[in-house]
Simulated scan of single mutants.
Amino acid sequence: MTQVVDELARRLAPGTLPSPPEHGDTLDHARRQALVRLRILTGVKEALRHLEDQAARAAADGGAGYPEIGQAMRMSRQGARRRWPGLITNSTPRPNHRPTYRSS
């Protein structure tokens, strides 16, 4: 996953910088490239967080609780609850689990 995001950042970065100087300060250009890449990665992180929020809401709407959401996020139940307070409520639809009775 890290390689995919790194490749995305590298592909987005060149279009945001002017061409490197022919006879200039290449260190300054390298610094600008690193800063642009950092800005792009910050945007990717924000987008991922937004997508995580959407996925957590969809999981909760589908009946998942904080323990399952936390496990999917590699965090504790408490960590998931802190990240998404109020996500799981009494009004969150849960699948109907009705016991099956057998007649004897």
Rank of each mutant, 00 (worst) to 15 (best):
A60K: 03
P99E: 11
L48Q: 05
P14N: 04
P14L: 03
S103T: 13
T92I: 08
S104Y: 10
E22L: 14
R81Y: 00
R49G: 01
G86W: 11
H50A: 09
A9Q: 00
L27H: 15
E68G: 05
E46F: 03
L41P: 00
H23Q: 15
H23A: 14
Q78Y: 05
W84S: 00
P85C: 12
Q78D: 03
P93F: 08
I88L: 07
G43F: 07
Y66S: 01
A30W: 04
G65V: 01
D6Y: 08
L48P: 01
M1S: 10
R94V: 06
P85Q: 08
P67Y: 02
S104W: 09
T26K: 15
S103F: 07
S104M: 07
P95T: 03
W84P: 02
A55P: 01
I40V: 15
G62Y: 03
G15T: 04
E22V: 08
T16M: 08
V44E: 08
A47G: 00
R94K: 13
Q33S: 09
G15F: 00
R57I: 10
P20W: 11
D61H: 02
T2G: 09
M73N: 10
R31Q: 11
S91D: 13
R57C: 02
A55E: 14
A72K: 12
R82G: 00
P21M: 07
T89L: 13
L17T: 03
I69W: 06
L51A: 09
L35R: 13
I69F: 04
V36G: 05
M1L: 06
P95D: 06
G86N: 12
R31G: 02
